[in-house]
Simulated scan of single mutants.
Amino acid sequence: MANTRFVISPLHVATDGLWLLHPSAGAARRGPGVLVRESVRERRLVLLESFFTGAWSYIPDFINPQPDQHEESLERELHAVATVDPARLAGEIGVMLAGDAGIGITGGRAPRALLRALDRGEADFAERVAAELHQLWQAAVLPYWPALRARIDADIARRAQTAARQGLAGMLAGLHPRVRYEEDGLRLAVDARGEICASSLQLTPAVFSSDLHIAVDPLPGSGRQRPMILYPALPGPDADPGPAPAPPAGDLIGATRARILGDLETPRSTTELAERHWLAASTVSYHLGVLHRAGLLVKTRTGHRTLYQRTQRAGSLG
């Protein structure tokens, strides 16, 4: 319990909004919640929709990489999703569909869209999930991010104040009615069953759903992820913020992608960009794929080389 810490994860904020797709979720009528549902439908984010509307009780952990620091960048998180170990991805999808009676996880039947995407291989599947998450972030979270981030900061500050006055046990017990701290550990009233002995615990405020979500790695092995609790953040001064002014390109697409895009007034290859920006070719390739799917790049083949150049639409980002 001494290693309990708060983490800020832009990707967890986005996926928290996806719980609004679940049949049991209440209908959001205005604000960011409406944008989440509309974005999934209008942009045809079929894999994200499949994850959060199925009958299973477990959502694969790879779509929410664990933060390595107090505040993670969206760019690093999306890269982790796109480059997840294929064996881990396959194992987590298997648990989602088949369930695990031993720990109380129920499975369900996979929709055709998910199965068709899996047929193309784990690597392609992971990249497509990362691309859909990026689209969701741009459409439904980014316009509200300053206000949502302020609410997250305020929640963490108030929880820290509670811990200072009432102790860590008092702070943990106040996270949610289904969280209870006892002498022998932390007890969570959730559907899954089991006992976890962990060296650390991560706490993440959620700003969309009002329920408690637990991230517990169901896969055996030495590389098991740390448990995480996603709890509803305390209401902020403005629980239904309006859209913020349009952000600069670096905030919209990430600093690294903004640099690459700015360097593509002249057509360049992946290898050339990797050398110019001191990045691995695989990293550059991933960023180019995101930019191309967003309609910000065109690519042409010249012999054995593929060249990328930014489009007119890219210039509108400023």
Rank of each mutant, 00 (worst) to 15 (best):
L74D: 01
E77D: 14
L78R: 09
L78N: 10
H79Q: 14
H79F: 12
A80S: 15
A80P: 02
V84G: 04
A87Y: 04
A87D: 15
A87I: 10
L89D: 01
G91F: 08
E92I: 07
I93W: 06
G94N: 09
M96K: 03
L97K: 00
A98I: 02
A98F: 08
G99I: 04
G102M: 09
I103H: 05
I105F: 15
I105G: 01
T106R: 13
T106L: 14
P111E: 05
R112A: 13
A113W: 00
L115V: 13
L115Q: 08
L115Y: 04
R116Y: 06
A117K: 03
L118P: 02
G121H: 12
D124L: 09
E127F: 05
E127T: 10
V129K: 03
V129T: 02
A130N: 03
A130E: 00
E132M: 11
E132K: 12
L133Q: 05
L133Y: 04
L133I: 13
Q135V: 15
L136P: 03
W137E: 01
W137L: 01
W137A: 00
W137I: 01
P143Y: 10
W145P: 02
P146I: 08
L148P: 03
L148H: 03
R149Y: 14
D153G: 01
D153I: 02
A157I: 07
A157K: 10
